[in-house]
């Protein structure tokens, strides 16, 4: 599972470029076209921790180690993520749409699908549907 290759190779018709990261102990990813930048620290006034924004975690397990720059209607903002951040081209055959009941009950309305990586789920979020102002 998740046999995607890092770097710019791969056929864009059969692979999707994703930015892989962790939200606390949860593996997550956002489509690379939504990520405008990556920094080690937050420098924008609008920012949010991925563990809180994506999973509604009330107690944060890990402090952000990287900040992804994303865009919403109000402009640029930063998403604090933990763990290694990597660009990977994942074959579309390894991307699973979200089952209806999962979509209906998950805390984040931006969750779109998932992959299975080494017997672990990686959650795929729509970077265009995220906003630091989003209330779960």
């Amino acid at each position: 599972m998740e046999s995607g290759t890092p770097g710019p190779a791969s056929d864009s018709a059969t692979h999707v470029a994703l930015v892989l990261f962790s939200a606390g102990y949860t593996l997550a990813a956002i489509e690379a076209r939504h990520v405008a930048g990556l920094t080690k620290s937050a420098h924008l006034s609008r920012c949010a921790n991925a563990e809180y924004l994506l999973l509604n975690a009330q107690l944060l397990n890990k402090a952000p180690t990287h900040w992804l720059t994303l865009q919403d209607a109000q402009g640029a903002w930063q998403l604090g993520v933990s763990g290694d951040v990597a660009l990977a081209h994942i074959p579309i055959t390894e991307l699973f749409p979200l089952p209806s009941l999962i979509a209906a009950r998950h805390v984040s309305p931006a969750l779109r699908g998932l992959t299975l990586a080494n017997q672990t789920v990686r959650l795929l979020f729509d970077g265009g549907a995220l906003s630091p102002d989003l209330t779960l």
């Binding site: 949860t26 999973l55 999962i102 009950r105 805390v107 984040s108 969750l111 299975l116 789920v121 959650l123």
Partner: peptide, 11 residues
Amino acid sequence: VYFVPGLPAST
């Protein structure tokens, strides 16, 4: 069964 964080206990 692969656990998906962010769901109620019934899932």
